[in-house]
Design a protein around this nucleic acid. Structure first.
Lengths: 220, 220
DNA sequence: AAAATAATTCAATTTTCATTTACTTAACCG
DNA sequence: CGGTTAAGTAAATGAAAATTGAATTATTTT
């Protein structure tokens, strides 16, 4: 019934690790550019340079592949947080550095925001299954909290700053123009993805965070 | 060949305007909750309480329906901007009001951010076709610019503030926790959609924008 | 009131796409 | 080496979903 596979078939050298890796890479960029529903399994296979069947061989389903991509992305951001070493810097520098590296991370790691967006569109269907997510938050927020406390002790920072609110703000200010680049560009008739615009924005964001934490002369 | 339609069929009262409206409403919420690829035409029809064929009758295709939904959403935000009347308020109040109403708008108009997110995921494929988009930006930015100029003239605001950067920041701070509610909640182990969290955030955002525009004692 | 128009329905048709079946063969293991 | 395992391939399957065909009838027009 089925045509015998002729010897003319181009043969792929066997290498499970490489194949798995290529699939994950391809999945990452496909899910990033098209979201979960928009991404096509065959397209991912093609980009990985392998047969679509292999995706099922190694990842079982589109959903699992997506979850794997999600995990990968969160490992990266976690690694970045570990490298920050906020505790070794004077408070003002620590906050500046946190802001700048966050801003730069989103700019260079385009997949993070894109996949995150897709996951939020899905209503967070898969995020809970990502092991990396569990152990992230608290230690990192504690580090920020330490910086804020130090800064206030020195009289440089204002009192009662909330580390979570502050960090969410840093992320928001650094991410929104990337997340919404197309609609923003269309709305304001400028190219917010352009190099100059982004440099301009970077300065604005850094200054904004600085002024949010800096103590003001007593306004009594 | 085809079975004659029996008289037992429940008959829908004919009313093109109502039907069109219901379809658009349904489309809005379907596209908002599932994005373009995730939304299903039959589901939209069902929610609109009509036959799926009517969607093609009135809107020609899924893509056109999506574009119509996009237009609708942008009309709303445009209308809101017109109602702000920033010019009648003292500068500090104007900025505060702009911040608060932006924040509140996103919270109550959940469809706007959701559809915007979908459109950005699609790489801005349709936004250019939306007529409402063309005439938005500049007049509104001019109004903000006026407020900033007035504020600086009074000595209340700092010099050289960029209206576009400021407005993008207001939007970013007001939108990010909604756009990314699921991943943020998972990451930080708290419910950023909860009422208290949002109220807390609102205060934080307002204060942040205030401190960004307020003039500081000369740091010479 | 007859004819024309267009709103509406049901059931195809067609497309797209995730997933599977059935097979082939390279690489490893004794 | 011979045999087993698992990596890989091509093509089919089947379900979901977009789109269309063709008939029906409410409403409007003349």
């Amino acid at each position: 019934m089925r045509k015998s596979l002729s010897s003319a078939t181009p043969v792929r050298t066997r290498d499970p690790e490489r194949t798995k890796g290529q699939i994950l890479e391809a999945a990452l960029s496909e899910f990033a550019s098209n979201g979960f529903d928009g991404a096509k399994v065959h397209q991912i296979a093609q980009r990985a340079g392998c047969n679509a069947r292999l995706i099922y061989h190694y990842f079982e389903s589109k959903e699992r592949l997506y979850t794997a991509a999600l995990s990968r992305i969160y490992s990266e951001i976690r690694a970045r947080e570990d490298e920050l070493h906020l505790d070794t810097l004077p408070p003002e520098h620590a906050i500046k550095r946190l802001t700048e590296t966050t801003f730069d991370f989103f700019e260079s790691n385009t997949a993070f925001l894109a996949i995150t967006r897709s996951e939020n569109l899905l209503g967070g269907r898969f995020i809970a299954q990502v092991p990396e997510i569990q152990k992230m938050s608290t230690p990192f927020l504690d580090k920020i909290s330490d910086v804020l406390t130090r800064g206030h002790a020195e009289g440089a920072f204002r009192e009662g700053l909330d580390p979570l609110q502050l960090y969410v703000s840093i992320v928001a200010l650094s991410a929104h123009h990337i997340n919404a680049s197309h609609t923003l560009s269309a709305t304001f008739g400028c190219d917010v993805s352009g190099k100059e615009w982004r440099q301009h924005r970077r300065r604005h964001v850094v200054e904004m965070i600085r002024s949010a934490v800096t103590a003001v002369e007593s306004t009594l």
